[in-house]
Design a protein around this nucleic acid. Structure first.
Ligand SMILES: [Mn+2]
Ligand SMILES: [Mn+2]
Ligand SMILES: [Mn+2]
Ligand SMILES: [Mn+2]
Lengths: 225, 225
DNA sequence: ATATATTTTTAGGGTAATCTAAATTTTTTA
DNA sequence: TAAAAAATTTAGATTACCCTAAAAATATAT
């Protein structure tokens, strides 16, 4: 029973969160280059950090073989993700930020220590289950259940679906969705799909219609009604 | 017109805040040793940092002569103090922390960047003027007006005063005040002062009475009714 | 099965913030 | 006002995180 409350640096926490995200549901090995890309550092720097994380028992690491989180590393990563998403809810629900504005601030707030702070924040927010982008918030015990949504590209013509989340969190994409009135919880009906470029003609909330590119469809998480 | 929005490190911000606090209203020179004590580092480390702060134009520094904040340094310090005190209000008013629990958490939160975050937080809290310890909150333009309170030791027998703040922020002291029902805004009447040790017999809110030591009196900020 | 390309690691350094020990400057005391 | 004491700075290291360039390992393509 290894404890999760030793002090990890901002940098270490960011690595763990990124490894968690890149290794996905199946816990695949993550490559040095993928980490260098995501951390905006060089591969040599990643190697240094991996050696350190391995020494601290946070990752499984064999040279040239990529890395996976240990159970301990997974726990730490999920705690950081919980904090990130709770702070995002706070920023949007309480302070009135747009969903396109909160990521970078939450990226800092997620590293504030104090278990009790997180629990009080969670209670203050009413124990939200999802963040402003539709991502699930891990519970206080560290359980994170990823709902299995569809991607809009998997939806057939004349099907109606509920908009549940986004894959791309880039401000420009979120602002585009705002301008198109595509918000979490809206109803999307696929009216037509262009065979050539897979762009789609969709109707939002049984009201206005618009064309969206494949690029947009690929980043929308939805659920059948 | 030097701008205040270049990036300063956590450490630099902590130094500026401490220099501000130690140099007091009169802007007295602060000594290397005083800073070493307050930052819990060694004098040699302080000297290194002072050279750096001076190069960045944040302090006036001549070797062996102590330091003062420049106008720029003062502005940065006050921004950090504003953030610290606003976050403390949030933690107490919104999350339900005790006034004895919030200092260390605010010590971290005060370094989160983003002007707009501070302004939205301020609005969310209803533009509070004072933090949970009675300390004034600088406004968004950087104006900080220290009210001139009395210290309880300056109050004469049978005078009634309003409890306005504390000088010592140590959790143990604040918890003692909680147990004694001495809270911000309560009425304190000095009934008797012991000539020998200057301990006092006081009445709180015209109700219960208790003895308090000189040490306690020295840390209570009050105002005549 | 080689040769080539790609990925990853190692080697050698840099900066920020800290330290101890020694040197220097200022202040205090006699 | 000179000696002693105290405060401060300098010298020389250490740790965390990051870099470039070169070497080594792995993957791919002929
Ligand atoms: Mn982060
Ligand atoms: Mn999110
Ligand atoms: Mn701080
Ligand atoms: Mn305070």
């Amino acid at each position: 029973m290894v404890s999760t409350d030793m002090q990890n640096s901002f940098t270490e926490e960011n690595y763990l969160k990124i490894i968690h995200s890149l290794s996905g549901r199946e816990g695949l090995e993550v490559s040095t280059n993928a980490l260098a890309e995501s951390t905006a550092t060089r591969a040599a720097s990643v190697t240094d950090m991996l050696r350190k994380l391995a020494e601290k028992g946070l990752i499984h690491y064999k040279k040239y073989q990529g890395v996976r989180l240990t159970d301990l590393g997974e726990k730490v990563a999920i705690k950081v993700i919980r904090k990130h998403r709770l702070w995002e809810v706070f920023l949007v629900e309480k302070l009135g930020f747009g969903w396109d504005e909160v990521h970078d601030i939450a990226e800092e707030l997620e590293h504030i220590p104090s278990e009790v702070l997180v629990e009080k924040l969670d209670a203050f927010l009413g124990h939200p289950r999802f963040d402003p982008h539709g991502d699930p918030i891990p519970d206080s015990k560290g359980n994170l259940t990823e709902p299995d949504y569809l991607i809009l590209t998997d939806v057939h013509i004349s099907e109606k679906v509920l908009m549940m989340g986004v894959l791309d969190h880039a401000p420009a994409f979120l602002q585009y969705l705002d301008r198109s009135n595509i918000t979490l919880g809206c109803i999307i009906e696929v009216k037509e799909i262009n065979d050539y470029d897979k762009s789609a003609f969709v109707q939002i909330n049984d009201a206005h219609t618009l064309f969206i590119s494949l690029e947009v469809s690929k980043n929308l998480l939805v659920q059948r009604l």
